[in-house]
């Protein structure tokens, strides 16, 4: 039960974030909006990381920073900026479902690069996502 509540709290955070960004992006550009949202995120996550994982931080290997660089580039100057740009241009109701289709791309990468198997649920899920996006995009 606790796991379900925590998962719902996570979904509420992700869902609410897009709506709050939509309101803010009426007044500032997606680039500045991304930067400001990241600064808030840094304060929260760095504080939590220092409190709960100080020993892990001290013991980090140099190669870890190469991975953080890759994740950092993909997630923020690319992922979040493109996400905010989309919210700013389309509105949150059209943008959020398309951005939310990211597991489709994860499945494509896992099947093509990772050599994982395309199962029936993944295939049906892919068709459902593409149909959903087509439905949203087809609006005048």
């Amino acid at each position: 039960m606790l796991g379900v509540l925590l998962s719902l709290a996570a979904a509420l955070g992700f869902g609410g974030s897009a709506v709050l960004a939509r309101v803010g992006l009426q007044y500032i550009s997606p680039v500045t909006g991304t930067l400001v949202s990241l600064l808030v995120g840094i304060v929260i996550t760095t504080t939590l990381a220092l409190v709960f994982h100080f020993d892990d931080i001290v013991g980090l290997a140099a190669i870890a920073f190469a991975w953080f660089l890759l994740v950092g580039i993909l997630n923020y100057p690319m992922g979040r900026l493109l996400n905010y740009n989309s919210v700013s241009k389309l509105g949150v109701a059209r943008s959020a479902p398309v951005v939310g289709a990211s597991p489709l791309f994860a499945a494509v990468v896992a099947v093509t690069v990772g050599g994982e198997v395309m199962t029936l649920p993944i295939f049906v899920g892919t068709v459902a996502i593409i149909s959903g996006i087509a439905l949203i995009v087809s609006q005048k």
Partner: peptide, 27 residues
Amino acid sequence: KGWIFVSLAGGAATWGVTFWFLALSQA
């Protein structure tokens, strides 16, 4: 106004990630 709302958006996204990890630790 823009700054306040995108700050809240950043906070909400961080809330989402934090609860996601907490959920994974419980379920």
